[in-house]
């Protein structure tokens, strides 16, 4: 790839990840929240932004990245998303325990919590599959289909969760980020033909 295009691609990804977080940092709601609540919110926003990187790394579309680097970074970013989600839930729990308990028990009055909790469990499932991949000894393509199926739940759940919340994220940057995450996920799934679980076809 020519250097200019390589730089532009990375720049676009950086903008897509940083802008929604930066705009959320200007939210007027922040002045009426204490630090723990603010941290919980930004952990969620950060997880959403990092989620964009996962399909890009899995699909190997980021310029200058070798396959082994893609795989390592996919793993690292995955761990970061889990940590961010943990901070998100813990921070919200410290801010308002009954609201988080309601969400975790699927009895919350807010329609977005159920999507967030669903995404959280799918995230843990996808991570568990990644951690146990060697021990499970599943056929590679079966494992990949299971992992990506859970990833679809993570992405869909997180997007609906984020879009229905009236919070610190700026409306347009949130919508664009959600659209990009969906598009990147769909693109990678199609490019990798994740539904093809049969024996590997030799390339012509």
């Amino acid at each position: 790839m020519i250097p200019a295009r390589r730089i532009l691609t990375w720049l676009a990804v950086a903008v897509a990840v940083v802008v929604p977080v930066a705009l959320a940092a200007t939210s007027p709601l922040l002045q009426w929240r204490d630090p723990v609540y603010i941290a919980a919110g930004f952990a969620g926003i950060g997880a959403m932004a990092l989620l964009l990187l996962q399909p890009l790394l899995a699909g190997g579309v980021l310029p200058g990245m070798r396959p082994i680097q893609n795989r390592r970074w996919h793993r690292r970013v995955g761990v970061l998303i889990i940590l961010a989600t943990a901070v998100h839930v813990a921070g919200l729990w410290m801010t308002s325990p009954p609201d988080v308990v309601d969400a975790l028990l699927f009895r919350s009055p807010t329609p977005f919590s159920v999507w967030g909790v669903l995404a959280m469990w799918a995230l843990l499932g996808a991570a568990l599959l990644a951690g146990l991949r060697r021990r499970l000894r599943w056929r590679w393509r079966i494992w990949r289909l299971a992992h990506t199926s859970l990833a679809i739940v993570v992405v869909t759940g997180s997007v609906v969760h984020a879009l229905r919340i009236e919070g610190t994220m700026e409306t347009w940057s949130k919508a664009v980020l959600c659209g990009l995450v969906l598009a990147a996920t769909a693109r990678t799934m199609i490019a990798l033909r994740i539904w093809a679980v049969g024996p590997v076809q030799p390339k012509e």
């Binding site: 308002s96 009954p98 609201d99 309601d102 009895r107 919350s108 009055p109 807010t110």
Partner: peptide, 8 residues
């Protein structure tokens, strides 16, 4: 009573 009404 509404869901979550008694929270906090």
């Amino acid at each position: 009573s509404m869901r979550g009404g008694a929270n906090n």
